[in-house]
Design a binder for these strands. Structure first.
Lengths: 334, 334
DNA sequence: GTGAAAGCGCTAACAA
DNA sequence: TTGTTAGCGCTTTCAC
């Protein structure tokens, strides 16, 4: 059986309250002698506070939930790392939950985490149907990466909401424009589409329009954010529109698939087809040819989210919306 | 304020005990009518059990801790995915903690997690100094990937210990032998070395000896399990022993670094130098040239660990040692 | 079938 | 400066 405040109190000849005060530190008025003896005894006995009891009493778990599509995607793993590092600094731990972008799983997870009394949730939402699919926000929640429209936020109920994101629309506008600038006249778009109104696609489409290029649905393919979507996507596009000369990819995983399949088909990159990704996962720079991509500040996305959440939990500072910048990484595929 | 058993009890005109029994399901002797009304009311009120209270009472958190070096390493992310999937099946959640292989951080984390009352811990241990650096095992713990010698296990104290691992020594023996079979006479070894007695290096050395090749310390470089170690390692080796004609890499990240630096130096792979990795992370097959490597069953490592742990927690089945098989993935770098 | 009593370990408010 | 009282929400005897 673990050692409790009571055990220490008995040996020190004081009450549990005194022990509690001393051990918790902070401001109290306990004599130096008592303090010292309590600290010593606690050390000797190897006292470790019982979190469940503290939790029940204080309604604080010092845990934050991380709801994400899939930790095996390096982009989300980087966010996780930022989260965990920042959380640790403040004595918080991270409860991870993979949703696979499954809306019902997401709901279940959200409820589950709130009953576990996480103090806050960092949520990379699937955004199916363009709206958050949880009945109500019960816990302070920061949405990362995928933005929520303000009307969704209003609708969501009681607990406060924050957002950390990048301007994906602009990023995709820029990268599409970059391809066009390099001479592409038939740039394709391969991505996932979890919401009706996809910002990445919007950026692509805007750039096309700006440069007087007519959008061609044979050049657009939507699947998931994974390598297979890249492979299948470019294969499909190659069959429908063999004159494709550029590919704007929804993320780097897709881009890697595109590179792979293009290689199999003997199409040279960037000679025949130019390719650009999104995220700048760790491996982007080790692809051959090295992947040109738009870097998301993934680690910072996580760290900022955790910092915002914890500062809200501890000091009541309000949650906020914050946009982080992307950075173009020109390498060899354009 | 959240709805409690008491709220339901009042409306249903029964005691909290009755409500608790019904809601928890399982075997009890409550009349169908009472049951039905309790269930209905609980549903209406949106009852969610308070985990902290349950925890305090039952000493079960339904959480398992995952202590790992770095979630940004895809190998550990894959394990995490296996863990989480298996844990979810049984109603458990995963608390992640990145240690960066820092022994003192590991200790702190281990203690922290046990005070959070995790029901078990899955531990990818740093194994510095060839022994586990935690004072005593307080919680059922399964060591994954890095094996613990049985003497370490005995020493560790009270709570039971399990292990899921692969035969790294054999794997490295085989892959070194493979390089030799392809004609390498000066195969190098680049890896991390966290313990004095490193199994990966042992396998490499054994193979050398078996084939009558004298080990040459200029061909051995140890750093960390990351890309930079591969880059620095091969750069260093190239300067010391330019006749190197093969590299056995401690993991795929290192191999990727080696490939990168070899390319910069104009050395052809596999023409001039043959390279083999370890893990088979997702990106191994998308390197150029495609990385030949030994696949670890990373997802299964995680899933098995969770299954073992949970079965022990729930049914008291003993923890055990289990070895999983690796599989050679011959691609283009040898 | 159902409920009363007790307590898990801790902390907040108030007394002394 | 220290202690008393009370209770967080739940579950576990055990009695009815």
């Amino acid at each position: 059986m673990a050692v409790t405040l009571k055990d220490i109190a008995e040996r020190a000849g004081v009450s549990t309250v005194t022990v509690s005060k001393v051990l918790r530190g902070g401001k109290h008025h306990i004599s130096a002698a008592t303090q010292e003896s309590i600290l010593r005894i606690a050390g000797e006995l190897g006292y470790v506070p019982n979190h469940a009891a503290q939790m029940l009493k204080t309604r604080r778990s010092h845990q934050i939930g991380y709801l994400l599509p899939d930790i095996a995607n390096p982009f989300f793993a980087d966010i996780a790392r930022g989260l965990d590092d920042e959380a640790k600094k403040h004595g918080y731990n991270v409860l991870m939950y993979n949703t696979d972008n499954d809306p019902s799983g997401e709901q279940e997870a959200y409820l589950g985490l709130s009953s576990r009394m996480v103090d806050g949730i960092v949520f990379v939402h699937s955004l199916v149907n363009d709206e958050i699919n949880i009945p109500s926000i019960r816990v302070p929640t920061v949405f990362v990466d995928r933005t929520i429209r303000s009307m969704d936020v209003g609708k969501s109920g009681n607990a406060p909401i924050g957002q950390i994101f990048v301007d994906a629309c602009k990023a995709f506008f820029d990268s599409t424009e970059l391809l066009i600038g390099r001479g592409c006249v038939r740039p394709a778009f391969i991505s996932a589409q979890y919401r009706q109104h996809d910002l990445r696609m919007e950026g692509y489409l805007n750039a096309l329009e700006t440069h007087g290029i007519t959008a061609d649905e044979r050049l657009i393919y939507c699947g998931k954010y994974d390598v297979d979507t890249g492979i299948n996507g470019i294969r499909h596009i190659l069959s429908m529109a063999p004159d494709v000369d550029g590919v704007v990819c929804g993320d780097d995983l897709i881009a890697i698939g595109v590179l792979e399949e293009l290689d199999r088909n003997g199409r040279k990159v960037p000679g025949d087809v130019r390719v650009i990704g999104f995220d700048d996962i760790y491996f982007a720079k080790y692809c051959r040819p090295k992947l040109t991509t738009v870097a998301q500040p993934s680690y910072m996305l996580g760290a900022e989210a955790a910092a915002m959440l914890i500062s809200h939990i501890e000091n009541g500072s309000p949650l906020y919306r914050k946009q982080l910048d992307c950075a173009l990484k020109i390498r060899e595929t354009i």
